[in-house]
Every structure is written in C-alpha cells, then in structure tokens.
C-alpha cells in the first residue's frame, strides 16, 4: 500500500511536471499581456514535432550526421527545439496578436484569435503531415531502477529535474533580471511603461520567446516520455494546464508551477484509488472548491478595483 502510494507520488511528479511546464508558458504571457494564449497547447504540440524532426535529422534518419550517440542528440535537440518553437510563438505574436493589440480591440477578440491560431496549427499539421502518428525515437535507453519496491526510470527523473530547473530559471529571470523587471512593469501598468523608455514590444516578444521556448522543451520531454505523437496531443493538456495556471493564481510563476503539480497529483491519485472515470469529476470539483474559497487562486493577489 505504502509502496504503491510512493510509486504514485513519483508518477504524479512526472505527470505534474508537464502541466507545470506548460502552465509556466501560459502564466508568462498572461502576466505580461493579460492575454490567455489559447494557442499555447498547440505550440507545445508543434514543439514536440519540431523535436521529432530535429532528432530524426540528428540521428541520421534523413541521411546526414549518421550515428551520433543518443545523449548528444538530446543535448543538441534541446536548444534547437526551444529556439525553433520560440520562432513559431513569436511569429504568431507578430502576425496575429500584435496588430490586434495595436488597434486596441476588446481583449476577448485576441483570445478568440489565439484559439483560432491553435486550431490552425493543429489541423495544418494534420493536413500537411497526415493523420498517422509518429513514433519518437529513443534517445536515451530507458533504465529502470528499483528502490524499496518503487520503480524509477532515468527519464522520469530527468523530466522532474527539467521541470524544477525551468521553474528556477524562469523565477530568476522574472525576479532578478532587468528584462524580468520590465516584464513585471508591463503587467503592472502597460501604458506607463513606454513612457519610462522601456521598449514594450521587445519585452513582449521576449515573453513569447520564453513561453514558447519552454513549451518546446515540454514538447520534447513529453515526446520522450510518451513516444507516440499526434497533432491533437496539445489540445487537452493545454486546456488543463491553463486551468492549473489559474488555480495556482495566474500571473504568478510560483502559482503556475504549484498549480501544475497540484493538478497532476489530483489526477494520478484519483485514478490510483478510484475508478478512472472519476478523474475529471473529482479533479475539477476540487479546483472549483479552491477557486470558490480563494477566488484569485492559490498564489494570486486580489487587486481591488477602484471606482
């Protein structure tokens, strides 16, 4: 009993890591622009596909660079995937969101545009690459360790480690660096920031780079852990990560991180001890309860509206 509990904690840490990584991206963009970037889940999916093609290319499946060892491929694929995914994210921002922002339209129209961009990414991928699933190559052979009856794999440890490192890095960037300060400034008052001589657009682009880059990272590791990738893989996990981000208190990095793990824990534990169909029911009831007790989420700070 204790063993399966411990085992499930590990499972939950792995599953929660993905929610956290995606929620971090939501949170960054939301914190700066107050925009729910609904395309984020699909950027995550694009990240997984980019990772797939990077790895295939580096592994020599297309005839170049044959025979690189798996760990080296991974080391090269991580930055490559992050950069390329960031390019996708920034492109969306430039083409779809920025013109709307310039026009000063209702925020909800930007949200709808984001939703539509997500659909375009999803179905564009499906139409171009076909409906067959892709099998992600094994970069690092899975090693199973057993400690006190609890099994751990190297991939699991890697995923959890990556999630924690990403959180620390993002936290550092947002709280300790100059550009992080600018990001916080924009979220505090978007109209005063340009007056202070801060290039708001650059900061926003940087935010998208960060958010999408980490979505790409999540995509890469997701594909390594669950090696069957398909165009719809990002849709559901994206929505759930968004919910996790809100429950944590959207706009707060620590909140998004904690929210992701919370959702992961609830989901895994429900499945482990109840019939699996109760998962969404119990998970969302708990979230609803949290939101009704703390309407701004776990780490969110209520802002008083002035008259």
């Amino acid at each position: 009993m204790l063993q399966s509990f411990l085992q499930n904690i590990l499972n939950a840490l792995q599953w929660g890591s993905f929610y956290s990584l995606i929620a971090l991206g939501y949170c960054l963009v939301y914190g700066v622009l107050l925009l729910i970037n609904f395309a984020h889940g699909d950027i995550f999916m694009v990240g997984a596909y980019i990772a797939f093609y990077c790895c295939m290319f580096l592994l020599g499946k297309f005839g170049v660079f044959a025979g690189l060892p798996g760990w080296m491929v991974l080391a090269v694929a991580v930055p490559l995937t992050m950069v390329l995914t960031a390019v996708v994210g920034v492109t969306l921002e430039r083409i779809a969101y920025r013109p709307l922002r310039r026009k000063g339209v209702n925020r909800l129209y930007v949200v709808i545009t984001a939703l539509m961009c997500g659909l375009i990414l999803e179905n564009g991928n499906l139409a171009l690459l076909g409906a067959s699933r892709k099998s992600f190559p094994t970069l690092v052979p899975i090693k199973v360790f057993e400690i006190f009856g609890v099994t751990v794999t190297n991939i699991k440890l890697m995923v959890i480690g990556v999630a924690i490192l990403s959180f620390l890095l993002l936290h550092f960037i947002v709280t300790r660096t100059k550009i992080g300060m600018a990001m916080r400034a924009i979220s505090y008052d978007r109209f005063a920031v340009p007056l202070m001589g801060i290039p708001a657009d650059t900061v926003i682009v940087f935010t998208f780079v960060l958010g999408s880059g980490f979505a790409g990272l999540a995509g890469l590791f997701f594909a390594m852990t669950y090696p069957v990738i398909d165009p719809y893989m990002g849709a559901l996990i994206g929505w759930k990560a968004f919910i996790a981000a809100v429950v944590g208190g959207i706009g707060s990095i620590a909140g998004a991180f904690a929210g992701g793990f919370l959702l992961g824990f609830v989901e895994i534990m429900v499945v482990a001890f109840f019939p699996s169909t109760y998962r969404d029911l119990i998970a969302f009831s708990i979230l609803l309860l949290i939101l009704s007790i703390r309407p701004t989420g776990l780490f969110g700070v209520a802002r008083r509206t002035k008259i």
Binding site: Y30, I243, V246, D280, L287, L288, T296
Partner: peptide
C-alpha cells in the same frame, strides 16, 4: 469572481457535467 477566473469556472463546470454523465 469575474474575467478569467470565471472562465475557468465555466470550463470546470462543463467538465464536471461531462464527467458526471460519463460515470
């Protein structure tokens, strides 16, 4: 609640309905 938090509540409500039916 208002705004994005209410949006989440509506999503959660829809999920709860769907999941109840599934069960």
């Amino acid at each position: 609640t208002r705004g994005d938090y209410l949006a989440i509540i509506t999503i959660a409500a829809a999920y709860i309905v769907k999941s109840t039916i599934e069960n």
